[in-house]
Design a protein around this nucleic acid. Structure first.
Lengths: 152, 152
DNA sequence: TTTGAAAAGGTGCTCAA
DNA sequence: TTGAGCACCTTTTCAAA
């Protein structure tokens, strides 16, 4: 467990909103000198609290207007079949997220497609042919709100 | 719908892998001059294909080791109750994502907590008291893999 | 231990040709 | 596209709180 003081949390909160701002700009907001701010950010990276930085793309503008969540139940669940499934599903470009979960379904997949008929193609030719697939449930995404989540 | 050429797609793919690389470094990889690369990136930002850049934080190192997906079915689903629910759920800091979906459940929430007993607190005092909540299903996240998804 | 001031070095952005 | 100029950002040093 890692100890972060109030300033660290303020830095994380600010960077969570805008990851592109520089140490000097951030320091001005927090009344902290530029090197002090920079050192704290560097430390947060080193201890791994800041794991990375990701581009966030507008999938609709890229022509992928349909997002569907699939709940997948495996027919057989040995260690091997989990690994087989994960390896195979990782090769499908339309799958954005693979979540191994505990519950009625074994996996939840976030799948993007150009439209519904494109999704049907992915579902029939890619998903239903995955090794060990049993039940599949689909939920179409209508709208989504992402929030920073708690920090400390 | 926006038209992107091959070079744009290569830029997006490269930036999706490493969002911190500069226009000059990227240009070298693609055999493109630095200003040309920079102009393309700028354009991709302007037309909104690149929506932003997000920090990705290690929630476990921040002390939030438990992630749970909640399927929530509303008891009453008028326009007002959807808005009431969304407004109320947005005020819970532990909720990272609110997804309005079509299917057995009306919403999917991504909730983080320090541990299972902390999650129970959030569930009982925050989630179950939300306006209009009917059935709730919970799935604990075991592991997760995120992928860039298709580009063009 | 962590800060702030100052400065060096490097890099990226911008513009003109 | 190239190259030069300029600005800013990163990184280090050092003294002080």
């Amino acid at each position: 467990m890692i100890e972060l003081d109030t300033t660290d949390r303020l830095i994380l909160r600010a960077l969570a909103q805008n990851a592109t701002q520089s140490a000097s700009a951030l320091g001005r907001k927090l009344n902290l000198s530029q090197p002090a701010t920079w050192r704290r950010i560097k430390r947060l990276r080193e201890i791994g609290v800041i794991a990375g930085q990701k581009l966030d793309l507008d999938k609709e503008k890229l022509g992928f207007g349909v997002t569907v969540f699939l709940g997948v139940k495996l027919a057989t669940k040995g260690r091997v079949s989990l690994e087989d499934f994960e390896r195979a599903v990782s090769a499908i470009p339309e799958v954005q997220t693979v979540e191994h979960i505990l519950g009625l379904y074994d996996y939840r997949l976030r799948v993007v497609a150009r439209d519904i008929s494109d999704f049907e193609r992915v579902l029939r030719r890619r998903i239903m042919t995955l090794p060990g697939v049993g039940d599949v449930e689909a939920n179409v995404l209508l709208s989504e709100e992402r929030r920073p989540g708690p920090i400390g």
